[in-house]
Design a protein around this nucleic acid. Sequence first.
DNA 1: TAGATTGTTAATCGATTAACAATC
DNA 2: TAGATTGTTAATCGATTAACAATC
Lengths: 215, 215
Amino acid sequence: MNHLKDYNRISPAVIKRLPRYKRYLSDLRKKGIERVSSGKLGELMGCTASQIRQDLNNFGGFGQQGYGYNVAALSEEIDGILGLAKNYKLVIIGVGNLGRAVHNYVSAYNKEYTIGAIFDVNPDIIGTNVGTHTILDVSQLPAHLSENKVDIGIITTTLDGAQEIANLLVNGGVGGIWNFAPLDLEVPEEIAITSVHISDSLQELTFYINNGNNL
Amino acid sequence: MNHLKDYNRISPAVIKRLPRYKRYLSDLRKKGIERVSSGKLGELMGCTASQIRQDLNNFGGFGQQGYGYNVAALSEEIDGILGLAKNYKLVIIGVGNLGRAVHNYVSAYNKEYTIGAIFDVNPDIIGTNVGTHTILDVSQLPAHLSENKVDIGIITTTLDGAQEIANLLVNGGVGGIWNFAPLDLEVPEEIAITSVHISDSLQELTFYINNGNNL
DNA sequence: TAGATTGTTAATCGATTAACAATC
DNA sequence: TAGATTGTTAATCGATTAACAATC
């Protein structure tokens, strides 16, 4: 399925664009469109055909001259590249509104991601249910990690204590951390980490409101 | 306060880093550290001193040779650049868990952002309260926009209908849109828009879990 | 004054776009 | 076959880093 190139040398800018390609392809698929050229896709996405071809050719030659790309096939290739063919076990730490939103969101996946357990520090909600999960005390996190293989730890706590949670996750052997707390966590470099910095995003928007959009 | 250069020509990469500088400076401030050199800050942030000086000099010369930067003063300069000295009126459309999380988050600001009204389509929650706000029917959004100056519309709905909400916001004269729905909204180019693509972020993380971190 | 560190120019590096031969 | 469109190399553009004179 994937052409076994050296994915480590591929620019982060390219990787960041893959989910976006996936969104547009899934859109085309819904509309029943079978094939698309880099030219047409570039028009839809607001980027150059050249960029699309360059990006995809990092991973393999998925197109066909004179035809373009098969939408369904390309979409599946991208899933393969991203690693969405596998299943990942998750834990969520912090079950406030944001944690619940992420819980809902991830629960909608039927294959790729499975929530193993959810944790909080607030005694008022520990023991209550969210969907099919019961909120556990965060003190049980290390035990859970040692008894279960967990791929991704999701941090939806506030700033305070987020680094300590990250340490527990790292020591518990997770493969990656999905961080929503407003700080840059320090983790060993073999641990993958992606942060969603919500407040940064609002401040960026504020700049562009005052200074005209990114053109 | 700001040195009135042409902020429109500044690279988006620089703008994206400003909130991050702000976070580190506020951290130093909390620790009671008064001054910092680009060298020391670069060490903390994991970037070059050169980049920090280049970034800041897009906006003005905030440092002093032989001394470095005054933490508090630089922090306030960055606030000014981002436009955080003003107050912005917001509306939130979509009061599920994500909308509530954003509501909480924004409510914590005391000066910069003020929530004017919140909207949803779900009759079960319309009329109920979130903090001091009563959830309004989304059909009342156009009227609200014509009666109130709204700076930022926050879209925390699902994919379906998000573009229609964006159209209402644009027609209602908002200055910018903060989008959490998993699509690229189409808006006129004079409208600032920043999206938080949560699902894209998880997929990016998944890639790095499988392929080693961004090094 | 001497040392430190900036502001800024020049050099390098990486990412995007253009061009075109290969080929379906 | 002729037309379309890819894969890929070369050219351009932009962003990062290095270097250093200016100066506090």
